[in-house]
């Protein structure tokens, strides 16, 4: 898929949902639990089961990012599946805390 900033992506094999915070202008293979994520908000029950080797899980509100690609996903619903891009699991991005300004 060719993701866009602000786009929602939903897992097809578990409860995971993310929003694209940052992305390059290129074709990417974004998966959760080993299965390609669907574009748009989650539509209901999972259509399959996650790959048992790809159960790293995601946490609500955490950012998952590949700095080389310039891809950043924000987890809006967590799930057991591993978030990955082009077959490589996405690590959690450590937050640079900004002071509260309003």
């Amino acid at each position: 898929m060719r993701p866009r900033v602000g786009q929602m992506l939903a897992s097809t094999v578990d409860t995971t949902a993310v929003v694209v915070v940052r992305c390059p202008d290129s074709e990417l293979d974004i998966t959760c639990g080993g299965a390609a994520m669907a574009e748009g908000p989650a539509t209901g029950a999972p259509a399959g089961t996650p790959d048992p080797d790809r159960l790293g899980g995601s946490l609500l509100g955490k950012r998952y990012a590949d700095e080389d690609l310039g891809l950043e996903l924000l987890c809006t619903k967590q799930g057991p599946g591993t978030l990955a891009v082009n077959g490589v699991p996405l690590p959690v991005k450590t937050a640079k805390p900004l002071p509260a300004s309003d």
Partner: peptide
């Protein structure tokens, strides 16, 4: 998308 971008860009969830 303006307001949400601002929130996501400047605040860490549940921090």
């Amino acid at each position: 998308h303006n307001l949400v971008s601002y929130v996501l860009g400047t605040v860490e969830f549940a921090a």
